[in-house]
Design a protein around this nucleic acid. Structure first.
Lengths: 232, 232
DNA sequence: CCGCGTCTTTACGCCGCCTTTATGCGGGCG
DNA sequence: CGCCCGCATAAAGGCGGCGTAAAGACGCGG
């Protein structure tokens, strides 16, 4: 009586035996697995089929899997669970700070992996189930967090670079009229490793204000603290 | 000092050395740790202080920590990271399925734990915005501690510098009609190193009273002691 | 392999905030 | 009555943060 389609899980790994092992196991657990052997293929599949969760190997033939995480994050909020044979602490920290939700070492116990998948889906589901309108308006500006677009006075969507968009989104998510600290912004856009680089903020806030044009006043500086989004 | 309160992290563990180790480490990482040694105390603290995240040991003197997770979930959505010496797969599965967000085995690497804390806070923070009602009114003045704004007679928010705001916030947080000593104010705004510089207070109280205009009388001098916030 | 866009980094002027000093005022106390 | 301490206010100077520009590094796509 599956009234709801089983959640898709994208498995990105270049070892065939992993797919042979995980594929049936995931199916038995009630998921619909999709397989990819390279980073490029994984990103393409993730973009086309929007899986509910991504299992990601770090050692891929076409590059370090960590680099895939920020790219995934550009178009999906699906939780990413890193599966890797690398057990160095630095790898785990780097992966988690890159945006991964969990890190499981190979070889892994299947039961634990499934439990971690359930936990990640539970946490992500609670977040995405928000019926809150993802379109936020303030003054002449209209930001669609789901669609990753922003328009001023109903004109064409602004052409924003990834960093510019992330910064605007972080400000908007803070809530209208609420201060978002420099720390928070730097963590959200550049990651916890760059909490000190306040200059990034000045540069990119400048870019944003320029592109916002008439709506530039919506980003207000709170000297020594951070920035505030909203009219008035 | 800190314009925005650091996230509180509740550490529930009965081993004192864990607190001795984690307390300073969490502080250094920019969090405000709270400690509890039993499940009952942990639940009480979590209810009273609503921490941003809970670090939970499984082996507590007054019961299995797993039982605490559903109870926590009744009044908070804060992520729960289980810290345990038990490495059996069944324990991990049970904890995660009980509602935990992550499971870290003791002994753990501090860097990894901090990274997992960041990941959990990141995922949880995207969803829940703590709508802490923090508006305090007194006479013609209205201070919103969460929004970091202050208005007089419903007019435009006052334009306050960081020091001015910190000082006003420290006064308001003291409670209406309560004296806040010079020591307390200096510590809160300028840090413990400037406990002697009472002149700072005179200068900045002056600035504040000037900007408050009609509400200037709300800051009353208590000669030789400190200042008092409130009407009458 | 090359060109282009984006990100990072550096440099610089400027404004505003913080700190510090000076001065006046008022009350307590000898 | 005069002294002194604490409070209030004004003003000056240094300095750091902010905004802007621009160049080099980097990665991506053709």
């Amino acid at each position: 009586m599956s009234a709801v389609a089983p959640p898709h899980i994208l498995v990105v790994d270049d070892e065939p035996q992993i797919h042979r092992f995980l594929g049936p196991a995931l199916e038995a657990a009630g998921y619909a697995p999709m397989r990819a052997a390279t980073m490029a293929e994984g990103l393409r599949l993730a973009a086309e089929r929007s899986p509910a969760l991504v299992l990601l190997d770090l050692g891929l033939p076409d590059g370090d899997g960590k680099l895939a995480i920020p790219k995934l994050r550009r178009f999906t909020d699906a939780p990413v669970v890193v599966l890797s044979a690398r057990d160095q602490e630095a790898e785990k920290v780097a992966s988690l700070d890159a945006g991964a939700d969990d890190y499981v070492e190979k070889p892994f116990a299947l039961g634990e992996l499934l439990a971690r998948i359930r936990a990640a889906l539970r946490r992500a589901g609670a977040a995405s189930r928000s019926p809150t309108e993802t379109v936020i308006r303030a003054g002449a500006l209209e930001v669609d967090l789901g669609r990753r677009t922003a328009r001023v006075e109903g004109r064409e969507p602004l052409k924003l670079t990834p960093r510019e968009w992330d910064l605007l989104a972080a400000l908007v998510r803070g809530g209208e009229g609420r201060v978002v600290t420099q720390r928070q912004l730097l963590t959200a856009v550049w990651g916890p490793a760059h909490v000190e680089d306040a200059q990034y903020l000045r540069v990119y806030v400048g870019h944003l204000r320029q592109k916002l044009g008439p709506a530039a006043g919506l980003i207000r500086t709170e000297p020594g603290v951070g920035y505030r989004f909203g009219a008035e």
